[in-house]
């Protein structure tokens, strides 16, 4: 067992993912769980975009003297754009389900919302 060496950016993104998962596991308020899910998503997006970074290069907009040799990998940036939109959609869906739950049960505490078992 050895301690893996990872860059600072990876470390930051990874800690966001872990903090989010911790929130999902431990918190009891539904809204806090959803916020934690968003934090996980943010961490993953950061991870994805930092994989595409190349030291010393600039944004992949090829004008004003930036050629193909001076730009970072554009694919992760395109992917992150998609991933963000997907995250927004999931959050919107989750919030509306939470609104429905609140209307039906009058609470957002997951310990009290337990009709389905088995």
């Amino acid at each position: 067992m050895s301690v893996p060496h990872i860059g600072l950016y990876y470390f930051g993104a990874l800690s966001l993912v872990l903090v989010g998962i911790y929130g999902v596991l431990v918190k009891k308020n539904l809204l806090k769980i959803l916020i934690s899910l968003s934090i996980v998503e943010t961490g993953v997006n950061l991870l994805l975009i930092s994989v595409g970074y190349i030291t010393g290069r600039s944004a992949p907009i090829l004008s004003e003297g930036i050629g193909p040799k001076q730009a970072v990998d554009p694919i992760p940036q395109a992917l992150v754009l998609t991933a963000i939109v997907i995250g927004v959609a999931t959050t919107a869906m989750a919030l509306s389900v939470a609104i429905t739950l609140y209307e039906k049960y009058g609470t957002l505490n997951i310990e009290e919302i337990r009709r389905l078992r088995g």
Binding site: P4, H5, I6, G7, L8, Y9, Y10, L14, V17, L18, I21, L47, S50, V51, G52, Y53, I54, T55, P60, L62, P68, A71, D73, P74, I75
Partner: peptide
């Protein structure tokens, strides 16, 4: 989970040029 992920990430070092399809795009 963190240890597991960090092990994987250690195999993808930060800031290196690993473009394949990306280079074609640029």
């Amino acid at each position: 989970i963190g240890y597991w992920l960090a092990q994987g990430l250690a195999g993808v070092p930060f800031g290196q040029d690993r473009m394949l399809v990306g280079k074609y795009y640029l």
